[in-house]
Structure formats: structure tokens, C-alpha cells
Design a binder for these strands. Structure first.
Length: 818
RNA sequence: GCGAAAGUGGCGGAACCGGUAGACGCGCCAGCCUUAGGAGCUGGUGGCCAUUGGCCGUGGGGGUUCGAGUCCCCCCUUUCGCACCA
């Protein structure tokens, strides 16, 4: 043995060499086997790289390196999501301007990322706060505006009366300001929306074919929240020109609709309320509207349902009965039509409300077996919500006896004939509000002119630069801080040339991240957001790896933006990420990491002590990548020892030539290559590492020294996990150049990957009794003969007659006696 | 409340299509080496009884099967989403 493995020295040497030789700089215009390997770019916090970042990036980097070793030209870029509320709040807290703070954080992140040995192409970094980037973010806004997909309308924002500022949703905790704990209220402001709801069905449909983690798809489906049902119009007594439209998923229960409920914001509330009820309804509505959204949305179990009778009546189109119209805040304006038909017998919320206010409850659906002799005056203890083929209608006129599932169709058809309703689909997704009354983001490229109205900034005038504003703290005016820069604010109208004002809101940071991956290949182009040929070559992204916390917002928004740009003819594809895999979360000693617990893993500390390679590999070893794992400080020594032993084996003085010494070892080698290739392809890094350990143990069994042919393939397989170590060993094994260049991933021979001899488990009456060794593919007779020769088998057969034999080739023989 | 996922040694975790449960690693135990070691090497390590050997064992209970960690039903626990979405 010569020299000990010194990770620090090895890693410094190779990082320098990678830099010098521009090893990971991709030939963006000429690559022949392009593979776009993407990971979710980080928000560069002041604390520096979090172990969660390292975990995410390591798993993604391993995939990229694996593809590279298999002969692809891998493009693996990185960038910084440095705009947004996080950065701004931190800047406010520290009293440092973000324009000063962010570059510092970016520099620190860059240092840390380089230290981890990721194969980033550092020549194509995206920083969303740079005008060269957000110029095109603004361009995208303009394209959406031009095609009518960006729209300005009034919407509520969270307002903290104490801090006198607009809050983002994530700053509202349980209805209170996260800073001063004052109760948050709603204010209505003009804001910009992207019409993502127009894409709801397509966003849903494409989930059928894109190759994503199932759980992520499920989250997206829930978020889109498609419901099939019907819109139904109810006539209002005394108002022949008005109808109240409701959405329901249960048109089959129409005969059971015994009252209606309007949301407090519903436009008809004021109009239809009877005189004698006016005062009490006004009071209720005012109170409801003063409550902030979060408070109001608190679950019904915590807060009893409240409401008031308007005194007005509507006509149930099925029964012709007059039913009362109520106002209650459990009905939300933003879903459906802000009004419901209440069917207390078959909806839990309506049931609760009806009980509270003693409103009539009429059963219209019962289990089929209760149909005969059903008592029309039966009472319910809770709402009965089943509605399949096995439940049938009662109290429903001509529809009596019809299965509920069928009645949904039939009653919808009847409503259509009567011009009282239509079958329809509703979605939960709302349009995307991109306005932020904040400072640290790209200005929305719009000018407000008294004469011309809303005027988009001409494309040739982009970017609209974010001005330096000394005091960037939001204030009580509800007007964004950008209004304080006169230079910025006052502008001439691009259409009439008259005096005009700029839009002072900035856009949501999710807009920055909705298209950053399109920019990477074209960071050197200032004339287009993304070069057409490069986009053709590299996009859509081949593999995207990231956290599931972005399953609905980031991933949904970037799919939407991609679709919109595709429809405008800017992109040849409509789904941005061909494959997406989520990774799990790291906990420590079974507990979530948090600053207050003081159990946060600081990557720098471990890298310093064990080296980046060992830290990387340990993170991958501690659990299935897609599920996360439990970080235990003791565990890291297992990887450390493993690498020491790989080092010793590969740098041994008596490294013999020739093929693997025994057939058995050769078989083990091929089986290991097969296992590692498959596991790395499917992100099962923990078992890939285990297989490599097992193999190394086999090559060293009995204290022997492995041969070169036994150890070289292992060095290559280790390369994605421990790139520096692999480079060093590759060089010491006598190779020129980098291990990552060329097609070095070992191939396996499927014939050799399986053993010639197999151990077959022998059971008697299903219980394991012995094992016999036979040639692969041995016949039942052969195995049986050998099995019956075993003492342990015969003993347990106890001289009884063989009833049956179950034979699974190469695996098992079960002798059933009795 | 609804939805999803998961419960396997002292610990992190393996286990193809139902076919020898506990791979790999940590820890622990014994031995070797060493002036010494929180280093390295070798061996052992699910539990219980035992002389060969045997019984029990994947949250609990039932079932299907020659055979169940794996499939079905009921229950318990944990984690994560959504949270009055009509």
C-alpha cells in the first residue's frame, strides 16, 4: 500500500483541472447526442446552500453524469431564482439593499456549488434578476397581453393594518401577519391575471402521457380539480328578469333542493333581499366581507355555519315549489357561480346548515333495497351522499326508481329541454394573479395613460429596468414602492406621447421560473429569448428532478407558459419536461431539520471533514432517492471506509492484469454492472451503492488483491457518485483525459450476469427445509431427486405420501405431503 | 373531515411477477495487529429454546393460496397533501 486517500487534495486538483479544461462546457450548437438534464434552480439565501439543495442537486447530477458516461452530450445548467419575497424580506430584515445583497449570496452559492463537484456548464448561468434575463420575462408578459391571456381586474389582497403592507399568501399564518401577528384583512386592488383556467383541460389531459412521478401528477389533478355537473337556473319570485345560476355535481338531487344559498359577495344579494330583511342581511354581508379569506375558509368543524334569510324566494324548476334564498359565508364566490342549490338530505354542509336554521330536508336518493315501501317522511341523521348505480331516486316525480348515476344524465337532459340548465364542467384552478405590490421583481411592462388607457410597453423598449429605490419597503398606500421613483413612474405614453404613469407592480417570481429552462441554451443571445435552433436541439427537457413542494405552482405555471408560447408559434412542443422525478426530503435523526431545533446539516462542515464525494455518496445511500432519508452522522463513515477500500484496491502495487480471476467473480461483475445500470437509470441510488459495496467485498474476499479488470469497471460506476475520486483513480490506472469523456460506462453480458448454478429452496408443506444446488435451468425431476436425497427433507416428509409438487424453475421446489 | 403514502432487527434501510425475510451500511460483540487509538483487519450479530435441531417473527385481527412483508377485508398508528370546491 502506498498512499492514503486524501479527498481534500484529490477534489481540489480535479476541480481546478475541470475549470482549466472547460470540461463541462457543452457544445451548444454542435452536440450530437444532446441530453438536457435539469434541476430546480435554487433561491440563493443568505444562509448558503442547504443540505436539501445538495441532496436534490446530487441526485440530478448523478443522473447527468451517468448519461454522459453512456455517451450523451449532457447539458446541465444552473441558475439563481433570486427575485421575490424571500430575498426582499431578508433584505428588509438585514437593512441591506437587495441589489447589494443578492450578488453576494449568488457568489457564495457559486463557491459552494463548485465545491460539490456538480457538472454544471458555468458558461450558461441564469440569474433572473439580471436585465438580460427579465427583459424576456417582460416580453413573455407582453405576448400574453397581446393574445388576450393577460387581463387586469380587481382582486382581494392580504393587507396587514399594522405593518400597513400587502402580504403574500405565505406570509399569512392562520389569518394573521407572520411578523406582528395582527389580523390580516382584505383589500381590493387592480391586478394582472394570466388566464391559466383556459388551459385547465389541456393541463389535465396531458398528464395522461407525460412521464412524471405519479404522486406529482396526482397533486396536479387535485389542484386542477375538474368536476362534472350542471349549471341550473332558478327563477326568482317577483323578478322576472333575474335568474340565479348555480353549479352542482348532483343534478340528480334537484327535487331535494329545498333552499338556495348565495355567497355574501353575490351581486344579486342586494337586489333580491326583501325590505324587512335588509338591515340584517346588510349587517351579515358587511361582517362576512370584513373577514379575511383565510379566516373565512377555516373548516366548518371549527366554526359553526352562519347565514341569514333574504326573505326572497326562488322556484325549484323540478318541483315548482317556492324555496327560500339565504346568504351564508360557507358559499364561496370564487367557485362556480357563487350560489348553490342546497340539498340538505344529500350534502353534509347543506345538512348542517338546514339543521341549524330548521330548514326543510327532503330525501330524494335511497339505497335500492329501501326503494319499495320507502317512507316519504323518513328522517336522516346525517347527509346521505352515495350516488352510484345502487342508489335510486324517490320523491322525484317521473324519475322515481331511476339509479342515481343515470339520473344525473337524465335530469341534466331534462333541464336542457326545459331551458333551465346545461351539463357543464367546473375547475378549481383560478387564474394566476401575477401582480405583486412589491419591489424586488421585474416591473410589469405596462403604462397607464389617461387618454389611451392601458398601453403595453413597446417590445423595442424592453427591458423596463427595475430602478434603484432606496426605501423599498411597502407602505400603507397600497401602491408599490416603484411609485417612489419619479424617474421611473412618470413617463410619456408610447401611443399619444402625453403624460402617463407606469404600472408599479412587479410580477410574481413564479413567472421568472416558468421559463428559465428555455433561456439556458441561449444566455449569450440578447436578440431573442431563446434561439430557435438551439431550442429544437435541446428542448423539451429530457430529465427534470426537483422537490414535490413545487408540484402545483412552479410545475403548473411552467407547463402553462410553455403551452401558451407553443400556441403562439414560439415553441415546437407544448410540454416543457418530458420526464419529471421528485426527490424526497432529508430529515436528521428522525426529526425535521430546523434552525430552532439546531439540527440543521451544514454541507460545508461535512465537505470539509469527509470531502464532497463522500458527502454526496452518503446522501444518496441513506434512503431511496425519491423518498428521502434520515441523516445520521455516524452513518457517513460507512461510505468513507468504502471509498478508502476502493482507493486501496485501485492503487495497489500488485494490480494484476488478465480477466477476472474466477468465473464466479466474472459473473458477479456482470451482475453488478447490470444492477447498477438499472438502479442508476431509475434513481435507486441507495441500492446501486449497496451493489457496488457488495461487489468490492467479493473482489477482496479472503484478503486477495483484485485485478485491474475487476476494479476498473467499478471505478467507472463510482464516477457519477464520486466524480473526483473516480477521475483520480482513472488517471492512476493509466488513462489520459477525463473519465467522463468518451463512452466509458461498462457494458454487461446478459448471459454472464446470471450464475450457472443456482440454489433452489426446498420446502415441505410450504416450509423451508433445505437448499440444493443445481445447474441453471435444471428440470423438476433433477431437482426433486436431489431434494429427496436431503436428510432434512426426508425427515420432515415423515414417510408420508407425496400429494403434489410445486416447482418454480431456478427458485423453489415445494413438496406437499399428507 | 377528505385524499394519498407508509408501518420490516438496536438504527438507516433491502426483498424481481406471491417463492430461502433482514442485502448493503451503522451500531454492537469477539479475536488479530499496534507503544497507543474513537485507526485498520478477520469473524459474528432478528428473537426464544437447544446437544443434533427446532419454534416464533415484517403494526393488530381475519381471509385467499402448496406458499403471503407482498393479494383481499376490518382495525390501529405515523407522515404528507387538500381543507366549507357545491
Amino acid at each position: 500500500m502506498t498512499e492514503r486517500y486524501d479527498p481534500g487534495a484529490v477534489e481540489a486538483k480535479w476541480q481546478e483541472r475541470w475549470d482549466d479544461t472547460e470540461l463541462y462546457r457543452v457544445d451548444i450548437d454542435g452536440a450530437e447526442h444532446p441530453f438536457y438534464n435539469l434541476m430546480m434552480y435554487p433561491y440563493p439565501s443568505a444562509e448558503g446552500l442547504h443540505v436539501g439543495n445538495v441532496y436534490a442537486f446530487t441526485g440530478a447530477d448523478i443522473h447527468g453524469r451517468f448519461k454522459q458516461l453512456q455517451g450523451h452530450d449532457v447539458f446541465e445548467p444552473i441558475g439563481f431564482d433570486a427575485f421575490g419575497i424571500h430575498s426582499e424580506n431578508f433584505a428588509l430584515e438585514q437593512g441591506i439593499h437587495p441589489m447589494e445583497l443578492i450578488p453576494r449570496n449568488v457568489a457564495n452559492f457559486t463557491r459552494q456549488l463548485k465545491r460539490m463537484g456538480f457538472m454544471y456548464d458555468w458558461y450558461r448561468v441564469v440569474d433572473v434578476t439580471q436585465p438580460e434575463y427579465y427583459k424576456w420575462t417582460q416580453w413573455i408578459f407582453l405576448q400574453l397581453y397581446k393574445t388576450g391571456q393577460a387581463e387586469r381586474r380587481k382582486a382581494p389582497v392580504n393587507w396587514c393594518p399594522s405593518c400597513k403592507t400587502v402580504l403574500a399568501n405565505e406570509q399569512v399564518i392562520d389569518g394573521h401577519c407572520e411578523r406582528c401577528e395582527t389580523e390580516v384583512v382584505q383589500r381590493y386592488l387592480d391586478q394582472w391575471f394570466f388566464k391559466i383556467t383556459d388551459y385547465a383541460q389541456r393541463l389535465l389531459d396531458n398528464l395522461e402521457w407525460i412521464d412524471w412521478s405519479d404522486s406529482t401528477k396526482r397533486l396536479q389533478r387535485n389542484w386542477i380539480g375538474r368536476s362534472e355537473g350542471a349549471d341550473i337556473d332558478f327563477d326568482v319570485v317577483g323578478y322576472p328578469d333575474e335568474r340565479i345560476r348555480v353549479f352542482t355535481t348532483r343534478p340528480d338531487t334537484l327535487f331535494g333542493a329545498t333552499f338556495m344559498v348565495l355567497a355574501p359577495e353575490h351581486p344579486l344579494v342586494e337586489k333580491v333581499t326583501a325590505k324587512k330583511q335588509r338591515a340584517i342581511v346588510d349587517k351579515y354581508v358587511k361582517k362576512a366581507l370584513a373577514m379575511d379569506l383565510v379566516e373565512r375558509k377555516k373548516a366548518g368543524e371549527e366554526r359553526q355555519k352562519t347565514g341569514v334569510d333574504t326573505g326572497a324566494k326562488a322556484i325549484n324548476p323540478a318541483t315548482g315549489e317556492e324555496i327560500s334564498i339565504w346568504v351564508a359565508d360557507y358559499v364561496l364566490m370564487e367557485y362556480g357561480w357563487g350560489a348553490i342549490m342546497a340539498v340538505p338530505a344529500h350534502d353534509e354542509r347543506d345538512f348542517e346548515f338546514a339543521q341549524q336554521y330548521e330548514l326543510p330536508i327532503r330525501i330524494v336518493v335511497v339505497p335500492a333495497e329501501q326503494y319499495d315501501g320507502f317512507d316519504p317522511n323518513a328522517e336522516l341523521e346525517s347527509a346521505f351522499t352515495e350516488h352510484t348505480e345502487d342508489e335510486v331516486l324517490v320523491n322525484s316525480g317521473v324519475f322515481d326508481g331511476m339509479p342515481a348515476a343515470k339520473a344525473i344524465e337524465k335530469i341534466t337532459a331534462w333541464l336542457e329541454d326545459e331551458d333551465q340548465g346545461t351539463g357543464t364542467v367546473n375547475y378549481r384552478v383560478h387564474d394566476w394573479c401575477i401582480s405583486r405590490q412589491r419591489y424586488w421583481g421585474p416591473p410589469i411592462p405596462i403604462i397607464h395613460c389617461d387618454k389611451c388607457g392601458i398601453v403595453p410597453v413597446p417590445e423595442e423598449d424592453l427591458p423596463v429596468l427595475l430602478p434603484y429605490v432606496e426605501n423599498f419597503k411597502p407602505d400603507e398606500s397600497g401602491v408599490a414602492p416603484l411609485a417612489r421613483s419619479e424617474e421611473f413612474f412618470y413617463v410619456n405614453c408610447p401611443e399619444c406621447g402625453g403624460a402617463a404613469k407606469r404600472e408599479t407592480d412587479v410580477s410574481d417570481t413564479f413567472l421568472d421560473s416558468a421559463w428559465y429552462f428555455m433561456r439556458y441554451p441561449s444566455t449569450d443571445r440578447d436578440d431573442v429569448p431563446f434561439d430557435a435552433l438551439r431550442t429544437e436541439r435541446w428542448l423539451p427537457v429530457d430529465m427534470y428532478i426537483g422537490g414535490e413542494e413545487h408540484a402545483v405552482l412552479h410545475l403548473m405555471y411552467s407547463r402553462f407558459i410553455t403551452m401558451a408560447l407553443h400556441d403562439m408559434g414560439h415553441l415546437p412542443f407544448e410540454e416543457p419536461y418530458e420526464r419529471f422525478r421528485k426527490h424526497g426530503l432529508i430529515v436528521r435523526e428522525g426529526a425535521k431539520m430546523s434552525k430552532s431545533r439546531g439540527n440543521v446539516v451544514i454541507p460545508d462542515d461535512y465537505v470539509e471533514k469527509y470531502g464532497a464525494d463522500t458527502f454526496r455518496a452518503y446522501l444518496m445511500f441513506l434512503g431511496p432517492y425519491e423518498e428521502g432519508g434520515d441523516f445520521r452522522d455516524q452513518g457517513i463513515s460507512g461510505i468513507s471506509r468504502f471509498f478508502d477500500r476502493v482507493w486501496d484496491a485501485a492503487t495497489s502495487d500488485d494490480l494484476a492484469d488478465g480477466p477476472p480471476e474466477t468465473d464466479e467473480l466474472n459473473q458477479k461483475l456482470h451482475a453488478t454492472i447490470k444492477k447498477v445500470t438499472e438502479d442508476v437509470s431509475t434513481l435507486q441510488y441507495n441500492t446501486a451503492i449497496a451493489a457496488m459495496m457488495e461487489y468490492l467485498n467479493a473482489t477482496r474476499a479472503g484478503g486477495r488483491s483484485p485485478r485491474r479488470s475487476e476494479i476498473e469497471p467499478l471505478v467507472v460506476m463510482i464516477a457519477p457518485f464520486a466524480p473526483h475520486l473516480a477521475e483520480e483513480l482513472w488517471e492512476r490506472l493509466g488513462h489520459d483525459g477525463s473519465i467522463t469523456k468518451g463512452h466509458n460506462w461498462p457494458e454487461y453480458d446478459p448471459q454472464l450476469a446470471v450464475a450457472d448454478e443456482v440454489d433452489i429452496a426446498v420446502q415441505v408443506n410450504g416450509r423451508f427445509r433445505a437448499t440444493v444446488t443445481v445447474d441453471r435451468g435444471a428440470s423438476e425431476e433433477e431437482v426433486k431427486a436431489k431434494a429427496l436425497a436431503e436428510d432434512a427433507v426426508r425427515r420432515h416428509m415423515d414417510g408420508k405420501e407425496i400429494r403434489k409438487i410445486i416447482f418454480v424453475p431456478d427458485r423453489l421446489l415445494n413438496i406437499v405431503v399428507g
